[in-house]
Each structure stands twice: as structure tokens, then as C-alpha cells.
Design a protein around this nucleic acid. Structure first.
Length: 484
RNA sequence: GGCCCCAUCGUCUAGUGGUUAGGACACCGGCCUCUCACGUCGGGAACGCGGGUUCGACUCCCGCUGGGGUCACCA
């Protein structure tokens, strides 16, 4: 049997970390077994589904490299295009007496539910309408035509339903605890539980991989597969992803969507690696490339307990992958992040590569890389007041000026070695230690007290810009002391 | 409340009856050093509790406690 797994996001918002992880495991499982990965769009909630979030989800998936064998743009894989199929199946169930019309109003049901809760009883539908007679040719509900009822699935009331879950193990449910759930609303539209079962059956899904919040649905869906005449697929329920406070990961925990990380300059390899390692392991290994993930993946090595999303570990992984890229690659990849800040993108790729090379050990994301490159990219830097106060003092103006002069006299290659030689000469003539000169120079050139090695910075900046900034600093010091 | 699930360092986890309980992130300290990083060396840090089973339990069983999921004309 060929493995066919699926991922069925709803296009009602951004692709969520917890959600995409279930999708990733479904994808890894399919790829591991050389099977097919099906992308289905659960867009039955027409109110909240948008084209924009659909496009965003597809982009995220492509970015992560989670390619699908079947799915969009083929309309067949959009749940809304299958409502006729869902309605026919409901009709079939009705004719076979495996479903029945329910005339209870939403208000009545709500009242009963509240009463049950008050009395600490299970708030389950009391099956008032089950067993009542109804014509064999009963039509599906349509409120607008006066057919104001819903269709419920007649769940077996005896026996039990077992789920042999690939990650959770065997779970047994009493059928008497299973609700007669609504499968067709009073407006005639099919409900998720029916649509999902039918789609999984029709698309011949062999393994349903999803979040474990679906566990309670599983025995009900198995009964529906059976009633519809299908063999139920295998199930693998992944534990939830939690926020740092132990509650399910949500927007209030900060960045939790794939797109947020994509736009912050994270690498897809890092995201993939992190997501896979959250709830799954392969001995002590922490770093996995995509092919290794596919090769090693299995549900046996998946944990059963929920995991806390750790943004710092993701960041560490991202740093790891950033270091894997060459400076030339990073120079290209950082451009969009420079543009986003409204800064000019250098035309000289080799120069940008040189600048990136000095920053790559310091930045953990492409976004940080762009941020740190600020003083290379712009000449209108505003030095930090604290740094100026601490390092740009009157007695350093002379050494700074001398350094500028000697630097401008360097002939030939403006290399780090040449720059170092100039420094050593200035240091000796003023009896200064490197630290005493380097920090003021750093403030003069970068505006702050933190930067790559000072020789590297000067080499990247070039003779002209370096000298200009040193002169500016000297002027600033003299201006300040003149005012004093 | 009913049903279901879960339980090793702060976090992600390894571990399948006998280990000094391992790794990673984070944290702390040393080294390197022109700042910050990187790197490197080292450190602290966990089997929720109580019963069994066993010569021996982190590992198996039961109970407790704690945490979570779910009970819609949402998906």
C-alpha cells in the first residue's frame, strides 16, 4: 500500500507554527515512505476564508520546501468545490437510516446544554429526534424553502471504537459516549466532520497526521468512515505546541506564524530543523538537513507529550544555518532586508560581500545582518550620545587627526595589514595602547561601541569614508570643547 | 463535570530493569581579545508523590497529584 498523507489547512489566517508542524510530519512521513503528500484546502468557513491567506500559506509551504503531489491550484482539492459530493453522501446516509433529521432548534439545544452543564451531566445531544419516523425520500434541509431542520449522524450506541494511534498508542472509546453529531446544517451545508471524512476517503488518504486536539473527533469519524462504507485510515496525532507559559501557542505569545519568521530573516532550513526536533528526535542529533529528516523520520520516535516552543533555540539553529552560507550568498539574501529598511542597496556585490563577511559571526538572522550593516551602508549615521561622551574626548582629537592623515597617505593596497601598520605607528608616537585608540575610532566610524574588528571596518569602509568620518569626529570634539 | 491524553534538568530531549541519568538551547565562570560577538575549556541544573512487582526500578503495574485536549448548525 502506498502511503498517502495530507495536510488540510484552513485559509482563515496565517500558517501557524503548531499547525505547520503537523503538516511537516505528514509530509516527512509521506516522503520517507516514497508516498504522496496531498494538500487540501479546508475552506468551508466562507466567512473567514480569504484568498490572501491562501496565497500566504502556499508561499510558506513552498518556502519550507514542503512540496505537494496533489492539491492547489487544482480546484478539486478545495473543500468548497465538493459540497455536492458531501450532500449526496448525507442523502445516502439518510436513505440507509444511518442519519436522521433533527428538528430541535438551536435555542432548545443551547438551553439543554446549559442545563446539563449546571447539573454536571455530560452536555451531549439527548437524541430527541432519533428514532422518529421520516419519509424515505426526505430532502436535505433548506431553511429558505421551509425545510428547517438539520441532519444528524446516528452514532452506534453500544460497543466501543478503538483507535490504534501511531503516536499515542491504542485508545478505546465507548460508543455510548459518542454524540449524534450534525452533518448537514439547516442551510443545507455540510459540516467539517462529514466533509473531512469524505475527502479523506475519496482522496484515498492512508494516514491522517494532525494535532492531538482532534483526538476526540477520531472515534466519531471512524464510525462515519464505516457507515459510508470505507475502511478508516491510520491515525497519528501529534502533541500540541505550547507557549512558554504552558498554554497552547497563540498570537499573544508573539511571533507564531511562519510568515513572521520568514520576514524576519530566518532560513527555511532552520525552521524545518527546529519544527522537526520539537516532539521528535533521533538520538542526540540536533542538526538535520532535509534529506536526513526524511530518511530518519518515523512516528515511533515522536514524543507523546506537548512541547514548549523555544524561540531561542530556533534562533540558535538559524545562526548555525547562517554560518553555513557563504558571504556571497548572504550578500544576495540580505538585500531585501536592506531594501525594507529604506537604505540604498550597494551596487558593488564584491564590496557588500566584504562587509557581510565582517558581520556574519555577529548576526543571527538576515534581518540582523542588515541592521548591523547600517554604518557601512549609510553615511548619515548619528553617533550614540553615551559613546561620544565616553570616548570622543579632547585629548584623543590629536591622535585621531594624525591617524586620519597617515591613513590618507597610505599608498597602494588599503589592506588590513597596511591599516594595522598605521595604527601601530600612531600608537607609538602618542604612547597609547590599542584599546585607547580603537574605541574612539570605532565610535567615529560606526557611531557605537560595538562593531567588527577595527581594521576590518576600516578596510571595508575604504580610505575616503574613513578619513571623512575621522575628521568629522575631530571637528565634533573641537566644537564641543569650544562651547565648553 | 464526562470522555481522552500526558508526566526525565528552566526548555527540547536520549534512555526501553543494573548508567557517575547522556546531548542540545538558555544560564554561570575561565581562556582568547581593540569593543561586541565567534571559538574554546569548565560548571550548576532533572527522573512529581505513594504503593506494589523484582535481587535490583527513571524504566513494568496500580493509585494520587499535577498539566493538557475536547464536549458547537467552527475547523
Amino acid at each position: 500500500m502506498t502511503v498517502r498523507s495530507r495536510f488540510a489547512p484552513s485559509p482563515t489566517g496565517s500558517l501557524h507554527i503548531g499547525n505547520v508542524r503537523s503538516g511537516l510530519f505528514a509530509w516527512l512521513f509521506a516522503r520517507h515512505h516514497g508516498g504522496a503528500f496531498i494538500l487540501r484546502i479546508d475552506d468551508t468557513d466562507r466567512e473567514r476564508s480569504t484568498e490572501q491567506s491562501l496565497q500566504e500559506i502556499l508561499t510558506d509551504l513552498q518556502w519550507l520546501g514542503m512540496d505537494w503531489d496533489e492539491g492547489p491550484p487544482d480546484r478539486k482539492y478545495f473543500q468548497t468545490s465538493r459540497v455536492e459530493r458531501h450532500r449526496e453522501a448525507a442523502l445516502q446516509l439518510l436513505r440507509e437510516r444511518k442519519a436522521y433529521p433533527c428538528y430541535c432548534s438551536a435555542e432548545e439545544l443551547e438551553a439543554k446544554r446549559k442545563a446539563a452543564e449546571r447539573e454536571h451531566r455530560r452536555p451531549m445531544y439527548d437524541r430527541t429526534c432519533r428514532g422518529k419516523e421520516f419519509p424515505a425520500d426526505l430532502e436535505l434541509p433548506d431553511k429558505s424553502k421551509g425545510r428547517n431542520y438539520t441532519i444528524r449522524f446516528a452514532m452506534p450506541t453500544e460497543g466501543e471504537t478503538a483507535v490504534d494511534d501511531l503516536v499515542k498508542g491504542r485508545m478505546v472509546f465507548n460508543n455510548s459516549d459518542l454524540d449524534d453529531l450534525i452533518i448537514i446544517r439547516s442551510d443545507g451545508s455540510p459540516v467539517y466532520n462529514l466533509a473531512s471524512v469524505l475527502d479523506d476517503a475519496d482522496f484515498q488518504i492512508t494516514h491522517i497526521v494532525r494535532g492531538d486536539d482532534h483526538v476526540p473527533n477520531t472515534p466519531r469519524q471512524i464510525q462515519m468512515f464505516l457507515a459510508l462504507g470505507f475502511a478508516p485510515p491510520a491515525f497519528a496525532h501529534m502533541p500540541q505546541v505550547l507557549g512558554p507559559d504552558g498554554s497552547p501557542l497563540s498570537k499573544r505569545h508573539g511571533a507564531t506564524s511562519v510568515v513572521a519568521y520568514r520576514e524576519s530573516g530566518y532560513f527555511p532550513e532552520a525552521m524545518l530543523n527546529y519544527l522537526a526536533r520539537l516532539g521528535w528526535s533521533h538520538g542526540d542529533q540536533e542538526i538535520f538537513c532535509k534529506d536526513e529528516l526524511i530518511e530518519y523520520f518515523g512516528f515511533a520516535a515522536c514524543g507523546k507529550s506537548a512541547g514548549v516552543f523555544n524561540a531561542e533555540k530556533l534562533l540558535w539553529l538559524n545562526f548555525h544555518y547562517l554560518k553555513q552560507h557563504t558571504a556571497a550568498e548572504l550578500a544576495q539574501q540580505v538585500k531585501p532586508f536592506i531594501a525594507k529598511r529604506g537604505w540604498p542597496i550597494p551596487g558593488d556585490d564584491a564590496w557588500l560581500e566584504g562587509a557581510v563577511a565582517t558581520l556574519r559571526e555577529r548576526a543571527k538572522t538576515l534581518n540582523e545582518l542588515a541592521e548591523f550593516a547600517s554604518f557601512y551602508l549609510r553615511d548619515d549615521i548619528e553617533p550614540e550620545a553615551k559613546a561620544v561622551a565616553k570616548f570622543l574626548k579632547p585629548d584623543i582629537s590629536e591622535p585621531l587627526k594624525t591617524l586620519a592623515d597617515e591613513l590618507s597617505n597610505v599608498n597602494g593596497d588599503f589592506s588590513e595589514a597596511a591599516i594595522q601598520a598605521v595604527f601601530e605607528h600612531v600608537l607609538a608616537s602618542f604612547s597609547l595602547k590599542l584599546g585607547q585608540l580603537a574605541q574612539p575610532v570605532r565610535v567615529a566610524l560606526t557611531g557605537g561601541t560595538v562593531s567588527p574588528g577595527i581594521y576590518e571596518v576600516i578596510a571595508v569602509l575604504g580610505k575616503q569614508r574613513t578619513v571623512a568620518r575621522l575628521h568629522a569626529a575631530v571637528d565634533r570634539i573641537r566644537g564641543a570643547s569650544a562651547h565648553a
